[in-house]
Amino acid sequence: MTTPADLNDDVRDPELPGRLLLLERDELVPLLRARPEADFALPVAACPGWSVRDVLAHCAAALTRVVEGRFEEGAFSPAANDRDIAERAERGSAEIVDELERGLTEAGPVMARADGPLDGIALGEWVHAGDVREALGEPGAYGGRSLPEALALLAALTRRQGRVALHADLDDADEPLRLGEATGERPPGRFLGDAATLVKLYAGRPVEPGPEWELAGVEAAELNIFGD
Rank of each mutant, 00 (worst) to 15 (best):
E24C: 10
R25D: 03
R25W: 04
E27G: 11
E27S: 15
V29K: 13
P30A: 02
L32D: 10
R33L: 08
A34Q: 12
A34C: 05
R35I: 02
E37L: 14
D39H: 10
D39S: 15
A41H: 08
P43R: 08
P43Q: 02
V44A: 08
V44E: 00
A46T: 14
A46P: 03
A46V: 03
C47N: 11
C47K: 13
P48S: 10
P48W: 01
G49M: 11
G49T: 07
G49A: 11
W50C: 12
S51M: 01
V52T: 10
V52E: 02
L56H: 08
A57F: 11
C59K: 09
A61V: 00
A62R: 12
A62L: 14
L63F: 06
R65S: 04
V66F: 02
V67Q: 01
V67I: 00
E68G: 09
E68Q: 14
G69C: 04
G69I: 07
G69M: 13
R70P: 02
R70Y: 02
F71G: 00
E72H: 01
G74W: 00
A75S: 14
A75W: 15
A75F: 12
F76E: 00
F76S: 00
S77G: 01
A79G: 12
A79P: 10
A80D: 00
I85F: 09
I85K: 08
E87G: 15
E87K: 09
R88N: 07
R91Y: 04
S93K: 06
A94S: 13
E95N: 10
I96M: 09
I96V: 15
V97I: 15
D98W: 11
G103S: 13
L104K: 04
L104V: 05
L104M: 14
E106L: 15
E106S: 13
A107I: 07
A107S: 14
G108M: 00
V110L: 04
M111Y: 06
M111H: 10
M111V: 03
A112S: 12
R113W: 05
A114I: 07
A114T: 06
D115L: 11
D115C: 10
D115V: 08
G116C: 08
G116R: 03
P117Q: 04
L118F: 06
L118D: 03
D119T: 08
I121A: 08
A122V: 07
L123F: 04
G124S: 03
E125Y: 05
E125L: 13
E125S: 14
W126H: 01
H128L: 06
A129L: 12
A129S: 15
A129W: 03
D131W: 02
V132I: 05
